[in-house]
Design a protein around this nucleic acid. Structure first.
Lengths: 202, 202
DNA sequence: CTTGACCCTCACGCCGCGTCAGGCGACACA
DNA sequence: TGTGTCGCCTGACGCGGCGTGAGGGTCAAG
């Protein structure tokens, strides 16, 4: 007996994706059904289904479909390799979400104390990375500039002190941000930021 | 003295969003600058900036822009309500992912008992939790950044070919992954990993 | 032989911007 | 006073990952 074949609808129901999505994956060659019925119906094999599940896994991790295709096409990579990589990715995502939950908790807690977090603090919790990322963004835009080369020289010799310096620099950015929003406001926010920097440093 | 006004570029630099994004938010009425200069320049006030930060806060939590607009306009529902909702959502996701991690660990363990793993792989498994913890921490710092999302979600910046390149070099997969996510940071991550390894060894 | 559920292939629409293109405004320096 | 070099403006098109019809075949049950 041959392997079981399933129609789009069946696959859709099994996996929770839409029929349109399966059509789409077929169109872009990401998941082509092993067979077609005489009438042109897509018929997915068990292997196809397994492939779909791997696709969905990576999709959940926010990879774009092209990249997913590349990942799945990599024959060199063993199953164990893939599993370990998946584990790392998952763990990282879970950790990040845990951190966001924690941040929300912190905010809720603060509100309970009547000390509702300011937007500035929210930025610190959720967005400090974004600020640091300015540097990365800057690299793309100003990759050739003097300033950047200067930074890069520092970066190539990273020591703990260098990182502290960068962090302080970042705190400076925070300060400018605060000043922009309301000159002279909320010194305690600044303190909080510095305290956080200290904690990260240790 | 009047409240300070900032041009698009200033706001962009302060918050890390692109000028185009600010234009877009203006177009759709999500964030309209309080004023325009005689020449038509957008001038953002401190209030505008604060509104933008709230927008970014919710965007970080994956609300679509329409919804964010509604949230900001909704005076009745408190922020705390929404935060609690979002908290539940995030917690659920994180839980699901922890479960997946556990499942993968289980499978890896099974394989370890089998014969398929090389000595090096076994070493990786034993030492992996620490290492991946670091990767997770790194992603916690950088994962929320614009760049990350650009790389992960919006495809063209990081193509399938790039990925092929990465995967072709089998050593240091995690580091390369991180490098891909945030160029120039790998060194820091590497240092952190090595430092951690040293500590574990002693 | 009909009915209704399912399948097919176009093909346009949507979101959240990125990315030119073409042109004006502001300011520094000659 | 001209001349750069910025940064700002307004269109307008493009893209990824599909949703959502329209218009029409297919297949099993009644």
């Amino acid at each position: 007996m041959t392997a079981q074949e399933h129609t789009v609808g069946a696959i859709a129901e099994l996996t929770g994706v839409s029929v349109r999505t399966l059509h789409h994956y077929d169109e872009i060659g990401l998941l082509e059904p092993g067979e077609r019925s005489p009438a042109g119906y897509r018929l997915y094999s068990g292997d196809d289904l397994r492939r779909l599940q791997r696709i969905l896994f990576y999709r959940e991790l926010d990879f774009d479909l092209d990249t997913i295709g590349a990942i799945l096409a990599d024959l060199a990579r063993t199953d164990a390799d893939r599993l370990r990589e998946q584990r790392a990715l998952l763990a990282a995502r879970a950790e990040r979400q845990r951190a966001m939950v924690a941040a929300i908790d912190k905010e809720l807690n603060a509100r309970k104390l009547g000390l509702s977090l300011t937007p500035q603090e929210r930025l610190e919790i959720f967005g400090s990375t974004r600020l640091e990322d300015n540097a990365a963004r800057a690299e793309e835009q100003w990759g050739g500039s003097e300033l950047w080369r200067q930074r890069q020289r520092r970066a190539s010799a990273y020591s703990a002190d260098d990182w502290a310096e960068i962090r302080d620099e970042q705190a400076g950015i925070h300060q400018r941000l605060l000043d922009a929003m309301a000159p002279g406001l909320s010194r305690y926010v600044h303190d909080a930021i510095m305290a956080n920097a200290d904690r990260s440093r240790s």
